[in-house]
Amino acid sequence: MPLGQSVSRRALLGTAALLPLAGGTAEASAVTKRAQDYYDRATRMAGRDPVLQALVKALMPDLAMPTAKPLRPLRIFDDVAVVGTTFVQATALLTSRGIILIDALGSPDDAEKIIIPGLRAVGADPSAIKYVVLAHGHADHFGGAQLIADRYGARVMMSRADWDLVAAQRPAHAPKRDLEIADGQRLTLGGTTVTFHHTPGHTPGTVSPIFPVRWKGRRHTAMLWGGTNPPAATADKRAYLSSVLAFASAMRRAGVEVELNNHGGADHGLARIEELSAGTAGAGNPFVIGRSRTQRFMKVMEVMVRGRIVQDQERGTGAGAAVGPSGRPAPRCC
């Protein structure tokens, strides 16, 4: 897996100058606005775009994720299938040499009853899974990984920071430590090359991939944002904001025109899956939203996260974070 150009730590530090940091002019400028001003701006930017409207809603402090209900397995592109529930999904990249599975739902039972039969339902062989890529170290994304690894010999990949997070918290169904994902690393299987970008914030080691997809034979470039729900601590929200800015730049360089998420309730993804399933999407693919809209998606995310940081300041809760039994921040989903 050769290394490609990465979003470097230096680039992340450079973008940090844009953030509302204590004692600087950016801070003074930020606190002249209320959090609601940021939320209102994001809402105006979203306009009538249902994808952006869903993102604004997902990034509000009172986020309520949908109840988990069965989701019909579906190829959303010629070479991409989605399996899972209405709460969380796994994305399968179907290559000529096997499958790269991004995320593995919440338990071995999910792997047995949802992922494996779901892949078969879309004409893919689950025994062809070569890699299970975990976008971040929360249980609703890694729970089925070890069963797949044990049964099919797949390698499990996650960033070092999130392998450490999982090891410290020792959750049920945690996969055995395997391959580490480096920032900018490229994984090639068949004719598909996935480039991984570290986008910390949601967890210390969240990873967001960029990869090619095909729709009716035509090639497009997709991204999948690895962790949507902003973290509890303000410092982690600032890291999240740096990641948004850096990843938006990486997307621009790569020409990303497809937006995907591992929680389809956060980006109108569930409705778009339903459109494709019902045949009401027309000739196009609703996940191909174009370069300008993918950049607008990231801009809306940026504005919303800035609002969340200001809201922490308004409430005087900037240093707080929910703490788990290990003394580390308690895990948050999504």
Rank of each mutant, 00 (worst) to 15 (best):
L276M: 08
A68D: 06
V7C: 05
T193D: 02
P117Q: 09
V310K: 13
P70M: 00
V88M: 11
G23V: 00
R272D: 13
G144Y: 09
S6T: 06
K216M: 07
G184F: 05
A135M: 11
L119R: 03
V323C: 01
P209H: 07
Q169V: 00
P204T: 05
I100Y: 07
V244C: 01
I76K: 07
A90E: 03
A283I: 09
G14H: 13
S249Y: 04
G118N: 12
G316D: 12
T43F: 08
D125W: 06
L105G: 08
K33N: 14
P209L: 04
T43A: 15
K237I: 04
I309V: 12
P73W: 10
R97V: 01
D103A: 05
T15Y: 14
L147F: 02
H268W: 00
H141Q: 10
D178R: 07
R44F: 05
H202M: 05
G23K: 12
S127R: 13
E302F: 09
V300E: 04
A54T: 07
P286E: 10
E180D: 12
M158E: 02
Q146N: 08
G290D: 01
G24Y: 09
G47A: 05
T193V: 01
V82R: 09
R48W: 07
R296H: 11
A30M: 11
R75D: 04
G324T: 08
F247L: 15
D183H: 13
A121W: 10
L63S: 01
H268T: 00
T91Y: 13
L179I: 12
G290Y: 04
R214T: 15
E259H: 08
Q185R: 12
